[in-house]
């Protein structure tokens, strides 16, 4: 006597196998969904903005007249902002990572700082904006200048840079530093001459990615009160400024008033995305070119 009814199994097998193939394609479709939206977004932005991109747009000053408006001021603002963000985050980020990975004793203080950093990474960017408004703009009385915006964004991306630098330092194999100690090098000499050079590509890759986050960030800057129409170009870190995302924001908000503002916003988005794309390409290049495998 048979315990298993072959007919029954045959019948169920059919639906089971069908569901198996069906879901394979459903899963594939969901994966493609995000990419399709991405393609629509990019196509939409390109078709709206590309005809507005020309030399005058890139080098012109802001204007209420869409035909004459340019984004040079916003580009310069982004550059000056980065001139504040890059040194501040690199020094603090790498310093903190070296301390946590190489100097701090494993214990309460270390794990407290570590937990604190991962909590900071989850704080909404707009809250950093309020911190910047309260501390840098108002309490230190800087006003809404490049320095205030740069420090705010630096604090925002600091957790990302710290974590990236920590991972890069951790990836440096132990035997390198042991060989250095074996030759009589002190701890700082080992850190400076052996560990940091080996960890640098990883740190740079992570920092560039964090930086591209700062370049695209808008929310904290809206809180600082960046002016909507700033005609003079910023000439240093103590000047008032605007950046590309803020320009996109104001033009998008005003697009119901004048349809051409939407095209200006789209053109600015193209410039911003190109900038981010170049940065990311550089980051990948550094990772592939300089990362040694031990």
């Amino acid at each position: 006597m048979k315990y298993v009814d072959q007919m029954q199994i045959q019948k169920r097998m059919h639906t089971r196998l069908f569901a198996n193939t069906l879901f394979k394609y459903i899963f594939l479709l969901s994966t493609l969904f995000g990419l399709i939206v991405l393609a629509i977004l990019i196509f939409r932005v390109l078709s709206q903005g590309v005809s507005w991109l020309d030399f005058n747009f890139l080098t012109g000053r802001l204007s209420t007249d869409p035909g004459r408006a340019g984004i040079m001021g916003a580009l310069l603002g982004t550059v000056w902002l980065m001139a504040v963000v890059i040194p501040v985050t690199l020094i603090i980020g790498i310093g903190t990572a070296i301390y946590l990975e190489l100097y701090a004793k494993k214990g309460r203080i270390n794990s407290f700082i570590q937990m604190n950093i991962s909590n900071l990474a989850g704080v909404p960017s707009i809250v950093y904006g309020l911190l910047g408004l309260t501390v840098f703009v108002r309490a230190m009385d800087m006003g809404n200048i490049v320095l205030a915006g740069g420090l705010t964004l630096a604090l925002l991306i600091l957790p990302i840079v710290i974590v990236a630098a920590q991972e890069a330092i951790r990836a440096v194999p132990q035997h390198l530093s042991e060989a250095s100690y074996g030759l009589g090098a002190t701890k700082w000499q080992t850190v400076k001459n052996i560990i940091m050079p080996a960890a640098l590509p990883g740190i740079l890759t992570g920092s560039i990615l964090a930086l591209s986050r700062a370049i695209g960030e808008t929310a904290p800057l809206t809180v600082l009160g960046i002016p909507a129409l700033l005609i003079p170009f910023p000439e240093g870190i103590f000047d008032k400024f605007t950046v590309l995302p803020m320009q996109i924001y104001y033009w998008t908000l005003d697009s119901p008033l004048e349809a051409e503002y939407a095209n200006l916003a789209a053109a600015t988005i193209i410039v911003l995305l190109l900038l981010l794309f170049i940065l990311n390409a550089v980051a990948v290049l550094i990772r592939n070119k300089f990362q040694k495998r031990y």
Binding site: A104, L120, L130, L155
Partner: peptide, 30 residues
Amino acid sequence: SYLIEKLIPTGLFLIATISILTTIGIIYTL
């Protein structure tokens, strides 16, 4: 170099506390 060896950890610790100061800053202002 002895001095450097002594000073570096303290300096790095001070830098590391900036992340804590940020948290304190956020919580205090809010």
